[in-house]
Design a protein around this nucleic acid. Structure first.
Length: 485
RNA sequence: GCCCCCAUCGUCUAGUGGCCUAGGAUACCAGGUUUUCAUCCUGGCGACAGGGGUUCGAAUCCCCUUGGGGGUACCA
């Protein structure tokens, strides 16, 4: 193992977002590529919203995608604990250090007072920021406020004189901020729990994180964190901010904007294959050297580098994911697809009890070519169950009544009966033979046959359909058609 | 409002001053695979946001404008 250490640090406050999992993926790829350590840390300091159920969901989805972490919750490691709420005493030491060195101070302003202050600033077209009211409280003043029973938070004392804070970002380049736009931000809440900005810094330092790869939404937090690193006299890790993933309307991909697929669970439930999702997500904001686009995880790891990460945000294109997932479905091991598909078929009410596994495999192999994700399979198998239903009765009957069609159907009945076993290969040969013997062209041969057997004008290959239906059902359906002439 | 980031086909992207009359993928359209849908193959449509510079030469460097995104919490 090299000394490359990266972490994915979600907060368990909801379903895991597809953009978040991409961040996890990039961390994972970077760690694997560099023979480093991939850590899962849970940032659960928001007690209002964090739940252990969501923490479990995060782990489940990561497991499903194969984003296995080397260190962190569940698996442990030498830098634990890996849940921030279990690290409270660790933060305490540094809070005290900051307080003692006059790099932080207690603030007694109430949320209402702060809101009022911001309101006033906004009205005057000023940037809403803490006005430093409690920054230089005397001991006496502090005691008075405490005697009032006021709760306090701890704020970081942002250096008074203006300075340029430059962040060296591996994907964005140098990004600079003026310390003037940063106000004295809260590092410990009134309940004694540290805020995100403080906890990340302490954790990343203590866990010896070498690269912080995270979403661009954290870029504006980075100068605050840099200030904290400076105050604690620690060296900051290498930062790398990944641009956001947008919805089709180019706004942030979110449930609110009406996007259908925002959470990882939704993709899993629709029957997207994990390797397809990995492949697709990797190409969203990163590109390899060549022009290939279909990669195994190993190939992606082999080629991955932060230098290939794009600066601009990317729209999540479900159409392309669908194409890619379809490719994976078609190329995957049939037995695996069968296993994945069966629950969807049962859920849709298809009775598979008395079907042989060979039959089920043939059905799924026949229709897998036309689906983008496994859940779609239920829309393609109806013709193999129950009775034929004519989609457009009038058109079907009209077709049956065309010249020579009765002969076509009769001939087929005979040939199907004569055939020893209805394997796709045998049927394929038989169809060709019949087609050549009959005095009709392709249109009058295949079309009525398709209508008779499936009730529809289009569908999978006929020879597969016949093999699946079996002799008895084929004869039934042909008889039904014949009866309408 | 203020701060930060970003800007090549509809979408994902290649492109780091001459290899660019801008390449690939997807989507779309057309033809082919002795019927159709899908698959597959072939071909086609389709972009450097706008304006100024710098340079012999700019998609590539600089500035402005515009547009989009993020942040502006005792959320992370």
């Amino acid at each position: 193992m090299s000394d490359i250490r990266v972490r994915f640090a979600p907060s368990p406050t909801g379903q895991i977002h597809i953009g978040n999992i991409r961040t996890a993926l990039f961390n994972y790829l970077f760690a694997k590529k560099n023979n480093g350590t991939f850590i899962l840390r849970v940032e659960d300091t928001d007690q209002e919203r964090s739940t252990s159920e969501f923490e479990e969901v995060i782990q489940q989805e990561m497991n499903w995608l194969g984003l296995n972490w080397d260190e962190g919750v569940q698996v442990g490691g030498d830098y634990g604990p890996y849940r921030q709420m279990e690290r409270l005493d660790l933060y305490q030491e540094y809070i005290e250090q900051l307080l003692e060195h006059d790099l932080a101070y207690r603030c007694y302003c109430t949320p209402e007072e702060l809101e009022e202050m911001r309101e006033k600033q906004r009205k005057n077209d000023e940037a809403p920021r803490y006005n430093g009211k409690c920054r230089n409280l005397t001991v006496a003043e502090r005691e008075e406020l405490e005697d009032e029973g006021r709760e306090s938070v701890v704020r970081f004392k942002v250096p008074q004189q203006e300075e340029e804070i430059v962040i060296d970002d591996a994907v964005k380049g140098d990004v600079s901020f003026s310390s003037e736009v940063i106000d004295d931000f809260v590092i410990v809440k009134s309940d004694g729990i540290p805020t995100y900005n403080f906890a990340v810094v302490v954790d990343d330092h203590l866990m010896e994180i070498s690269h912080v790869i995270r979403g661009e939404d954290h870029l504006s937090n980075t100068p605050k964190q840099q200030l904290l690193y400076d105050a604690l006299e620690w060296e900051a890790p290498q930062f790398a901010h990944l641009s956001m993933i947008l919805g089709s309307d180019k706004s942030k991909l979110s449930k609110r904007s009406g996007e259908a697929y925002v959470y990882v669970s939704q993709y899993r439930e629709k029957g997207y294959l994990p390797e397809a999702l990995i492949n697709f997500l990797a190409l969203l904001g990163w590109s390899p050297d060549g022009e290939e686009e279909l990669f195994t995880e190993e190939e992606i790891i082999e080629q991955f580098s932060l230098a290939g990460v794009t600066k601009s945000p990317a729209v999540f294109d479900v159409e392309k994911l669908n194409w890619m997932n379809g490719m994976y479905i078609r190329n995957a091991d049939l037995k695996r697809i069968v296993e994945l598909a069966i629950p969807y078929l049962e859920e849709a009410g298809y009775d598979l009890e008395d079907k042989s596994s060979e039959w089920i495999e043939l059905v799924i192999d026949t229709v897998r070519g036309s689906i983008d994700y496994i859940a779609e399979i239920t829309e393609h198998v109806d013709l193999f169950f129950g009775e034929v239903e004519y989609e457009d009765y009038d058109q079907v009957v009209e077709t049956f009544r065309e010249d020579q069609v009765d002969l076509v159907l009769e001939t087929l009945k005979e040939k199907v009966t004569a055939l020893e076993s209805l394997t796709p290969q045998a049927v394929k040969g038989m169809l060709k033979e019949a087609m050549n013997e009959l005095p009709v062209g392709g249109r009058l041969f295949y079309h009525p046959l398709r209508f008779a057997l499936t009730g529809q004008g289009s569908g999978p290959e006929l020879y597969n359909i016949i093999a699946i239906l079996g002799e008895e059902e084929v004869i039934n359906r042909l008889d039904k058609a014949l009866g309408l002439i």
